[in-house]
Amino acid sequence: MEYICGFTFAPFCGAGVLKEASAKESLKEMKERTGANFVIFAPGGVQKTAHSEEICYTSKDTMTDEELISMIKYAKELGLGVALKPTVNCKDGTWRAFVSFFDHDVVCEPKWGNWFESYTKFQLHYAKIAQEHGCEMFIAGCEMVMTEHREQEWRTLIRAIKNVYHGLVSYNTDKYQESYVNWWDEVDVISSSGYYPIDDWENQLDRIEKVVETYQKPFFFAEAGCMSVEKSNLVPNNWEVRGEVDLMGQRDWYEAMLSAAQKRSWLKGVAFWSWNAKLPSVEEAREMGDYEVYGKPAEQVINQYFTRR
Rank of each mutant, 00 (worst) to 15 (best):
residue 304 Q to S: 11
residue 167 G to N: 06
residue 285 A to N: 04
residue 185 D to F: 08
residue 186 E to D: 13
residue 20 E to Q: 14
residue 201 W to T: 00
residue 30 M to E: 00
residue 123 Q to S: 07
residue 35 G to T: 03
residue 254 Y to E: 09
residue 192 S to W: 09
residue 189 V to E: 13
residue 97 A to N: 05
residue 215 Y to A: 03
residue 198 I to N: 10
residue 16 G to I: 08
residue 106 V to I: 15
residue 80 L to T: 05
residue 184 W to L: 01
residue 189 V to Q: 12
residue 3 Y to W: 02
residue 85 K to F: 03
residue 221 F to P: 01
residue 75 A to L: 12
residue 159 R to N: 14
residue 185 D to S: 12
residue 40 I to C: 02
residue 15 A to S: 15
residue 81 G to N: 13
residue 23 A to K: 05
residue 224 A to P: 01
residue 247 L to D: 11
residue 227 M to I: 02
residue 56 C to P: 00
residue 259 S to Q: 12
residue 17 V to T: 15
residue 135 C to P: 09
residue 64 T to K: 07
residue 309 R to P: 00
residue 290 D to A: 00
residue 132 E to A: 14
residue 240 E to D: 06
residue 17 V to P: 00
residue 10 A to G: 08
residue 222 A to F: 00
residue 263 K to F: 02
residue 75 A to K: 05
residue 5 C to T: 13
residue 16 G to A: 06
residue 246 D to T: 05
residue 31 K to E: 09
residue 108 C to G: 00
residue 114 N to M: 09
residue 58 T to Q: 09
residue 75 A to H: 12
residue 203 N to S: 13
residue 57 Y to Q: 02
residue 169 V to K: 06
residue 98 F to I: 02
residue 101 F to A: 04
residue 58 T to V: 01
residue 44 G to Y: 11
residue 258 L to M: 15
residue 207 R to D: 07
residue 285 A to R: 02
residue 246 D to N: 14
residue 37 N to K: 10
residue 115 W to H: 12
residue 21 A to H: 07
residue 109 E to V: 05
residue 118 S to C: 10
residue 282 V to R: 11
residue 52 S to Q: 06
residue 121 K to T: 05
residue 134 G to S: 14
residue 222 A to T: 00
residue 55 I to S: 02
residue 269 G to S: 14
residue 6 G to K: 09
residue 155 R to D: 00
residue 236 P to H: 07
residue 209 E to K: 11
residue 4 I to H: 06
residue 77 E to H: 04
residue 271 A to E: 03
residue 48 K to V: 08
residue 247 L to G: 08
residue 227 M to N: 10
residue 111 K to V: 12
residue 197 P to H: 05
residue 185 D to P: 02
residue 108 C to S: 14
residue 187 V to K: 03
residue 127 A to E: 07
residue 246 D to C: 10
residue 201 W to K: 11
residue 259 S to I: 03
residue 98 F to E: 12
residue 85 K to S: 01
residue 52 S to A: 15
residue 113 G to I: 01
residue 198 I to R: 08
residue 263 K to H: 10
residue 64 T to W: 11
residue 78 L to N: 09
residue 202 E to Q: 15
residue 123 Q to W: 03
residue 289 G to L: 06
residue 137 M to R: 10
residue 253 W to E: 10
residue 178 E to H: 07
residue 61 D to N: 14
residue 306 F to N: 07
residue 126 Y to E: 08
residue 13 C to M: 01
residue 60 K to F: 09
residue 304 Q to A: 11
residue 147 T to V: 03
residue 297 P to D: 06
residue 178 E to V: 13
residue 296 K to H: 04
residue 262 Q to Y: 03
residue 114 N to S: 14
residue 25 E to P: 00
